[in-house]
Design a protein around this nucleic acid. Structure first.
Lengths: 168, 168
DNA sequence: TTGAAGTTTCAAAATATATTGAAAGATAAG
DNA sequence: CTTATCTTTCAATATATTTTGAAACTTCAA
């Protein structure tokens, strides 16, 4: 398989994967493109490669920067901005895990905690069933929260350790 | 907080969580409803509780059954079908993990394996960058695959063990 | 200043996804 | 067989999300 074809297929696969994950397709495609490119790209290059509009490019690059998956790069002597993506896939995974925890797990845990103390007679089977369900889901959520937190922490401290070595 | 209000809030929270995960909102809401109800519900009861149409109910219940999250229940003396949800949240998690692995991870692994052998000179930095990226993502995918498989297996064997005890 | 080069915004249009409801299809009881 | 009850299907409709592109804005160099 030729490089161009392989690249296109990777971008499209990563894009639909993103879509299934509630991440918009273009955002995932830009990320895929930047991951396989050795050098930073400008907004125009991204537009061209993916055949998307300027506005779309701008919006999704900004979102990728918010997630910490893409960085602005200044190329000396160039007026334009360039963009580059995090290429270490483990780091990508922790960045995504952290962001999704913040957006999804944290809010649902807040709600679950409130729902714990629903009024009513424990003898009422509807009240009992509700309480039991919420209690179990809450326990599970706490467990998941801990797991994600330690996953993210582990990666961060590994990264910190590696970074520090550079200055020793 | 009253039960009715708490139930409504749980259903709506679970629903939007599902939506962020690429699961359709109604499907997640039906699942939430059935999780907190002590007894099986009929299609009409689901329609009423969630204010949705018959077709929508039918379609999403069927999908939940496909995922293994909901079961048809026959109530003696009743013509209608009733539905009940898996209430053990760990089991729910493994059912979802298994289904998502099948739908998302397996297909992308297939593509990644094909993309491994892109033609071209290793000295070409574009070829090299592409190969390196795919290689790393592939390694990560295999790791993830193993982790999910053992998670699902562990839950299954735990379940099997528990089930067996009943017959001892 | 001025204007050229680049970036951002956002209302409108396009696209994708979910929902409805009526009609067709099953199934069981009489 | 016929009817009543319940389930499924699917084209039409409604809703939600994404994308466009032109105008407004920013920045830098002359």
């Amino acid at each position: 398989m030729k490089l161009a074809e392989a690249k296109a297929q990777f971008i499209q696969t990563w894009g639909s994967l993103g879509a299934q994950w509630g991440i918009n397709r273009t955002m995932a495609q830009i990320h895929a493109l930047l991951m396989v490119m050795p050098d930073p790209l400008s907004a125009d290059e991204i537009m061209q490669e993916l055949n998307i509009s300027r506005g779309n490019t701008n919006m999704n690059v900004r979102e990728l920067i918010n997630w910490g998956l893409v960085e602005r790069v200044l190329v000396p002597g160039e007026r334009r901005e360039f963009f580059t993506a995090e290429k270490d896939i483990w780091k990508v995974a922790t960045l995504i895990a952290r962001e999704r925890k913040k957006r999804e797990l944290d809010p649902i845990m807040k709600v679950l905690n409130q729902l714990q103390d629903v009024e009513g007679d424990q003898k009422d089977k509807y009240v009992k069933a509700f309480r039991d369900s919420i209690h179990n889901i809450n326990k599970f959520a706490h467990q998941t929260d801990k797991t994600i937190t330690s996953f993210v922490k582990a990666e961060e401290s590994w990264f910190y350790g590696t970074l520090m070595k550079l200055f020793k």
